[in-house]
Deep mutational scan, measured.
Amino acid sequence: ASVAVIAAGTQGNIFATSALRSMRFLQILRMVRMDRRGGTWKLLGSVVYAHSKELITAWYIGFLVLIFASFLVYLAEKDANSDFSSYADSLWWGTITLTTIGYGDKTPHTWLGRVLAAGFALLGISFFALPAGILGSGFALKVQEQHRQKHFEKRRMPAANLIQAAWRLYSTDMSRAYLTATWYYYDSILPSFRELALLFEHVQRARNGGLRPLEVRRAPVPDGAPSRYPPVATCHRPGSTSFCPGESSRMGIKDRIRMGSSQRRTGPSKQHLAPPTMPTSPSSEQVGEATSPTKVQKSWSFNDRTRFRASLRLKPRTSAEDAPSEEVAEEKSYQCELTVDDIMPAVKTVIRSIRILKFLVAKRKFKETLRPYDVKDVIEQYSAGHLDMLGRIKSLQTRVDQIVGRGPGDRKAREKGDKGPSDAEVVDEISMMGRVVKVEKQVQSIEHKLDLLLGFYSRCLRSGTSASLGAVQVPLFDPDITSDYHSPVDHEDISVSAQTLSISRSVSTNMD
């Protein structure tokens, strides 16, 4: 405001104040949320940038038409019409005319000016109207692209899951042992070998009828009888010197917790746990005396209480009078009846079946994303299906024409109403129809010849004498029936064969 007042002088105070007050009108834009329509302006900018070359070309040609039209109309009207006294007036008329506004304040009066105005109007309006069409088509394409992008975003994750499931299904095939990355992934998420051994031990116990592997080994086996189970490696608790092959000598807290839970599941009659010990102070733990958990001091820290809870689970003690015997301790020893080589084939089979199920689920979810969402998608899918159906029908028609023997030239002739090819031409065609016709002709010829021969033979049998045999009239074959199959017997006289037959029969009768 200060700059405006200084620039306008003393009389500019009122002007500056009114100008600043008129800017209050811009507050109405906040009512229509114009300040939060950044996406709309961004869309407009992207459309203009995408079609910038077309817009520049249309505007450039339109500007050239405007300059030439205004100049030529000015030359034609400057002497006869006072409205075109300057080139600026003519340029104003050209702008209003070519933009199809047409105020009518300035019009050419001479015939030359009117002809020039009409010609440049028809030429220039087309170029001035091009930017509107370019922007409209650009907006339509952009909206369609955003629509497809939205659908693509919805299909991206199911497609990625389907590709991942397909690759993992491919890589978990037993015949592709060189693909090891997927197996490394499952090695990292699978439970430890100790848990798998416990699982298979329970399965084997159920197969043995509820007997433990130790009891199965204690059962008497006759001499020479084959053992029911192959000899396997035996594993004891981590306190002993022997372990399962492939295990580490260090046992983690999870393994100890699972070991304690498995020992508690063996039965309360074979294992008696004394009350857990509780320390009397955060600094020292008295293991010899058993106290109640309700006497825990409230001033303990979080670490002390955590250690106390761990001691409740991981440090059970047995009383002296209830101490288990050596046999019970041997039964409680952890027996590992299986090795990694025995378990891994079954584990890989389970993983393979899981990968198949996940692949089928991913495939079903991806197919669900291909379903249409709204009416536009339904129409688009219907149009695509219609085009596909037309293509299939056209391909089927082409194959039928190839089989029947109607080529493209014959199809055009039928469409024009011309006469089709004759039967002889159809026979000569190298097509399925021509071959079928040729075979039918040959079969008819053979059938006719057989009928003639059978009739001749029956007449010979009825006559009974050589004289009557020679008097029999043998009809000749019709050459038209034989089609294109020409037998060497067709052109010979059958009477010669009949005479030869009669001579042979007379000779045979004389010999008798």
Rank of each mutant, 00 (worst) to 15 (best):
S171T: 06
M174T: 08
S175R: 00
A177V: 01
A177G: 03
L179P: 14
T180A: 10
T180I: 13
Y184D: 11
Y185H: 10
Y185N: 12
Y186N: 05
I189T: 02
L190R: 01
L190H: 01
L190I: 10
S192Y: 04
S192A: 09
F193Y: 13
F193I: 14
A197S: 09
L198P: 06
L199V: 10
L199F: 08
H202Q: 06
H202Y: 08
V203M: 13
R205G: 07
A206D: 01
A206S: 00
A206G: 10
A206V: 04
A206P: 08
R207L: 04
N208Y: 06
G210C: 02
L211P: 11
R212Q: 03
P213R: 07
E215D: 09
R217P: 00
R218G: 08
P220Q: 05
D223G: 12
D223Y: 03
G224R: 07
P226T: 01
S227A: 14
S227C: 03
R228G: 04
P230L: 12
P230Q: 04
P230R: 08
A233V: 11
T234S: 08
C235W: 08
H236Y: 01
R237G: 04
G239V: 14
S240I: 11
S240R: 06
T241P: 01
S242A: 00
C244S: 09
C244G: 10
P245R: 10
S248C: 11
S249I: 06
S249C: 03
R250G: 14
M251L: 02
G252C: 03
G252D: 06
R256S: 03
G260R: 09
S261N: 10
S262A: 05
S262F: 15
Q263E: 08
T266A: 15
G267V: 09
P268R: 15
S269A: 08
S269F: 00
Q271E: 11
H272D: 08
P276A: 05
S281A: 14
P282T: 06
P282R: 12
S283G: 10
S283R: 11
E285K: 06
E285V: 01
Q286H: 10
V287L: 08
E289D: 07
A290G: 10
T291N: 06
S292I: 02
V296E: 11
Q297H: 07
Q297R: 10
W300C: 05
F302I: 14
F302V: 13
N303S: 06
T306I: 04
F308L: 14
S311A: 11
S311F: 11
L314I: 15
K315E: 14
R317G: 04
T318N: 15
A323D: 07
S325L: 12
V328G: 05
K332Q: 03
S333R: 13
Y334H: 05
Q335L: 08
Q335H: 05
C336Y: 04
C336W: 11
E337Q: 10
E337D: 04
T339M: 02
T339K: 04
T339R: 10
I343M: 09
I343T: 08
A346T: 01
A346G: 09
V347M: 07
K348Q: 06
T349I: 11
V350I: 01
R352S: 07
S353T: 01
S353A: 04
I354S: 01
I354V: 13
R355T: 08
I356S: 01
L357V: 01
V361E: 01
R364G: 07
R364K: 02
T369K: 15
R371G: 01
P372A: 07
V375L: 03
K376R: 13
D377N: 08
I379L: 07
I379V: 08
Y382S: 03
Y382D: 04
Y382H: 10
S383P: 14
H386L: 15
M389K: 10
S395C: 08
S395I: 05
T398A: 11
R399L: 07
V400M: 02
Q402R: 13
R406Q: 07
G407W: 12
P408H: 03
P408L: 08
G409W: 12
R411M: 02
A413D: 04
A413S: 09
R414L: 08
G417A: 05
G420V: 14
P421T: 05
S422F: 12
A424S: 13
A424G: 05
E425D: 14
E425G: 15
V427L: 01
D428H: 09
D428A: 11
E429A: 01
I430F: 07
I430S: 10
M432R: 12
M432L: 10
M433R: 05
M433I: 04
R435H: 05
R435C: 00
V437G: 02
K438M: 03
K438E: 04
K438N: 05
K441N: 04
V443M: 09
V443G: 07
Q444R: 04
I446L: 10
I446S: 06
I446M: 01
H448R: 08
K449N: 12
K449Q: 01
L450V: 04
D451Y: 02
D451H: 04
L452Q: 03
L452V: 05
L453R: 12
G455C: 02
G455V: 04
Y457S: 06
R459P: 13
C460R: 06
L461V: 04
L461M: 09
L461P: 06
R462C: 08
S466P: 15
A471D: 15
V472A: 09
V474A: 09
P475R: 07
L476Q: 09
L476M: 12
D478Y: 09
D480N: 06
D480H: 14
I481N: 13
I481L: 11
T482S: 03
S483A: 14
S483F: 08
H486D: 15
V489L: 13
D490G: 10
H491R: 13
H491Y: 14
H491D: 07
E492D: 13
E492V: 10
E492A: 11
D493A: 09
I494V: 15
V496G: 13
Q499P: 13
Q499E: 15
Q499L: 06
T500S: 12
T500R: 09
S502N: 14
I503M: 02
I503S: 11
S504T: 15
S504C: 09
R505P: 08
S508T: 14
M511V: 15
D512H: 15
